[in-house]
């Protein structure tokens, strides 16, 4: 498989996964609104932070309110929106059509046009849910189509690599924002914090929901929903397909099928050790931020090793 093509396939998978995750986040946030008492301010800005688009956002908007954030993440050309993610997905798919199943390209193409025509309708609350659901299920349909039609060769390995790394990365971002910004932006003062306590559960529940993790959490974690268990589940559960640990393990398995993977494997093992380090209960009181920062750097480093090993050689 050509290095250039491997790179495009990998990014196609990453962008598709990112589009789906962004749609999930927007959906959950929009629903969360309805559960909160009137007068509480929801930290819409944290959504921008999760996707890493603060700079582009601040250049465009003064205030991070529902309308501006949804517009930014859904329907604008700014490098962070679902529409842009899908355009990137399509472009990468269009330039690798010779190796991808043709139905997959057709579905990606269809989804892109659907989003292009309908994305701005999601800025208003009414049609938003339906729109986001449609995008999410199309993304899943495409992933399913690839799983059901692609031979387990190099091309599919790069699809899985891209998807898993993107998931791991996104989950750390959600945990990051979930454990700080989300809470602090809602509680205005200490008194308010006490009054807000019942809503903590709702928040953590929605963090789980953004990853479709609520049901699985309930089945596997016997405790009621609480911050520590949610963070542990999303970071360390080996079986849940969106947890960081699960995705790193998936990557380890995928790597066995690829040539010259030693350096990448070492980096993934290192990242796995870091996820498992320390007791989360303790970390949540102090040092979680640093812990997540470390983790994100290690994940970025996995990407770099992947690129060095397979995309850039011979250049």
């Amino acid at each position: 498989m050509l290095s250039r093509v491997a790179e495009r396939v990998y990014w196609q998978a990453r962008y598709l996964e990112r589009a789906e995750n962004t749609a999930r986040l927007l959906n959950v946030f929009s629903t969360l609104l309805l559960d909160l008492p009137t007068g509480t301010k929801l930290g819409w800005r944290s959504l921008v932070e999760i996707t890493g688009g603060e700079e582009a956002f601040d250049a465009r908007y003064k205030q991070a309110v529902e309308r501006s954030v949804v517009k930014f993440l859904l329907a604008e050309n700014n490098g962070s929106s679902i529409l842009d993610m899908l355009a990137h997905t399509r472009e990468n798919a269009r330039t690798t059509r010779e190796i991808m199943p043709s139905e997959a390209f057709e579905k990606i193409n269809e989804l892109y046009y659907f989003a292009k025509e309908n994305a701005s309708s999601g800025i208003s609350r009414g049609p938003r849910h339906e729109l986001l659901e449609a995008i999410i299920s199309s993304c899943q349909q495409i992933s399913g189509l690839m799983a059901g039609t692609m031979s387990r060769g190099a091309a599919y390995s790069f699809v899985r690599l891209g998807r898993s790394l993107e998931r791991a990365d996104m989950t750390t971002r959600i945990v990051d924002v979930g454990s700080f910004n989300l809470l602090s932006s809602i509680s205005k003062s200490k008194d308010q914090a006490a009054a807000d306590e019942p809503y903590d559960n709702i928040l953590w529940m929605n963090v789980l929901r953004s990853q479709s993790a609520y049901q699985m959490y309930r089945q596997h974690v016997k405790h009621r929903v609480n911050g520590e268990d949610v963070v542990t589940f999303l970071l360390r559960d080996e079986e849940f397909p969106r947890s960081v640990t699960h995705n790193l393990i998936t990557i380890t398995k995928v790597l066995h099928k690829l040539p010259n993977q030693e350096k990448v494997s070492k980096q993934v093992e290192k990242t796995l050790r870091i996820v498992g380090r320390g007791k989360l209960g303790k970390l949540m009181d102090e040092g979680l931020l640093e812990y997540i920062d470390d983790l994100q750097l290690e994940i970025a480093s996995v990407h770099k090793k992947v690129a060095d090993t397979w995309f850039l050689p011979n250049k």
């Binding site: 498989m1 050509l2 290095s3 250039r4 190099a154 690829l258 040539p259 397979w310």
Partner: peptide, 21 residues
């Protein structure tokens, strides 16, 4: 394979493509 010029290299009068292997 669909290749661009940058994917190919000539060594000892033989043409090779740059692959992940």
């Amino acid at each position: 394979e669909l290749v661009e010029g940058g994917d190919l290299v000539v060594e000892k009068d033989r043409v090779f493509m740059k692959t992940v292997d």
